[in-house]
């Protein structure tokens, strides 16, 4: 019931980015992250930012939604920035107290790393915002399929991921119900762990585990009844096929890489 945006939430739409093959999207978003890492200076990072903004425009996702979807992880950005401020030293010293020393290089470095991390998060969220979780699992499974020959259980991993995703919202709601039921019986979950807190935690976790086992038992019967016998001989409702959009996506990311490399060379030349 909660409408709070979480990282990885899908933003339904029908943009060219939404329609791309999830496998290509998955690989491309990895590629974009690598490109962001390759960017050496502010110029390169600026180019990355420009391209990522372009991708969001193509995906028709409002920037506010994108920001909201990574909001829970922004503390990571802040944390990294703080660590850099504190641990990178050099240049003019702005502020010093006890062992804390804020220097010019530290601030620059912190700003740069924060921007880079921010762009990385944005590019990762573009994948999850435009791809339904199910498509992500499917892409994951298919990308791993070639490794099945060396014994990697690609199908089983995909199936597990799919079932986990299917039960996640259910467990969330069951957890809420159990929580409320035990609170009704006077349980406190914030109190001293040595004074009834552990028992309260058990009162929350054990019902959740028993419910998981109960679900698992019926689910396995139900899957048996529907003739599930592993990945061999299984067909797929959705057949993934590469199209012009995917080619365009690859071209766009290639262009981004070229731009960033050019910026790097340019920056190196000037310096």
């Amino acid at each position: 019931m909660s409408e709070v945006a979480v990282f990885g939430q899908y933003w339904a739409g029908d943009s060219p980015v939404h329609r791309m093959d999830p496998r290509v999207k998955m690989l491309l978003s990895l590629a974009v992250m690598v490109v962001v890492f390759c960017a050496q200076g502010w110029l390169g990072l600026g180019a990355c930012a420009a391209f990522i903004v372009g991708f969001f425009l193509a995906a028709q996702i409002p920037i506010s939604q994108a920001l909201r979807s990574i909001a829970p992880l922004l503390f990571l950005v802040v944390l990294t920035a703080l660590l850099n401020v504190l641990f990178v030293q050099g240049g003019e010293v702005y502020f010093q107290w006890w062992i804390i020393c804020v220097s010019e290089e530290g601030v620059t470095r912190a700003a740069f790393v924060a921007c880079r991390l921010f762009l990385l998060l944005m590019s990762a969220s573009l994948l999850t915002l435009t791809t339904a979780t199910l498509d992500i699992t499917e892409a994951f499974e298919r990308l791993l399929a070639p490794f099945a020959r060396i014994g990697l259980p690609a199908h089983e991993l995909g199936m597990m991921m799919g079932i986990a995703l299917r039960f996640l919202p259910q467990f969330t709601s069951e957890l809420r119900t159990v929580y409320r039921a035990q609170v009704s019986r006077g349980a406190t979950f914030t109190a001293n762990p040595f004074k009834g807190g552990v028992r309260s935690l058990l009162a929350l976790m054990i019902p959740l585990f028993t419910s998981a086992f109960r679900h698992a038992e019926t689910l396995s019967s139900a899957m048996d009844a529907r003739c599930y016998h592993g990945g061999v001989g299984r067909t797929r409702l959705r057949e993934l096929s590469l199209g012009r959009l995917d080619a365009a996506g690859v071209a766009a990311v290639a262009l981004m890489l070229a731009a960033v490399l050019a910026c790097n060379v340019l920056a190196a030349g000037i310096l």
Binding site: E174, T177, V178, R180, A181, Q182, S184, L202, A203, L204, M205, I206, P207, T210, S211
Partner: peptide, 10 residues
């Protein structure tokens, strides 16, 4: 609650 037996734990 509904199905209160699902909240047994001890």
């Amino acid at each position: 609650f509904q199905y209160p037996e699902h909240q047994l734990f001890a």
